[in-house]
Amino acid sequence: MTIQLSALSALGALVIGTIVAIFRVSPVRVLRFLGTSYVNLFRNTPLTLLMVASILGLSFILGLSWSDQAKTNAFIWAVIVLSIYHAAFVCEALRSGVNTIPAGQAEAARSIGLTFGQSLREVLLPQAFRGAIAPLGSTLIALIKNSTVAAVIGVADAAGLMAVIVENETGSLPVFFIFALGFVILTLPLGVWFTSLSRRLAVKR
């Protein structure tokens, strides 16, 4: 469940984060403002709060439900909240990636007649992603660990399972340890892989 939740949320965060990052570097002032507001709002709100607000506020009180099954509903809300929350961090990682590109390249792209969208797709974003691989990796690792927060709205992820086991068995310390190890096994190779990826794909200047 943790893996499924993380994978879907990572995908969502990447897509939303890219769009918000485009807003933040766009020449249109209103879009820039929207992008900045998004980042400030979600980067500064605790994830647990968003989780609880989604299920209590949006789902129970306003009746926004994705599925009749409480379990599926909670899972989808968890994916959405994790995506939206981490998109703010993805956006900032990408924006720092954009900032590593010399301003002249955007000018060169425009001067051969590329439109703003084409310069983004062909010149700026590919380099921004490469420059942002390391911070994106950190964000992904944080996302995997933060997916445990979904337990507060009843998604049976690792933390939820752990709580159940601890409740039913004695000797909670070994259980904590095993689950911690599980996360290390999940995230450590990811970190190593991202580091090597960022070296391999680095844009030479």
């Binding site: 590109i101 010399p102 002249g104 390249q105 000018e107 060169a108 792209a109 425009r110 001067s111 051969i112 007649g113 062909e122 010149v123 590919p126 380099q127 490469r130 844009v203 030479k204 200047r205």
Partner: peptide, 16 residues
Amino acid sequence: RADVGMVFQSFNLFAH
């Protein structure tokens, strides 16, 4: 702009 070529002081080739 497509009809107006521009060569810059700092070359500005696309590094990737």
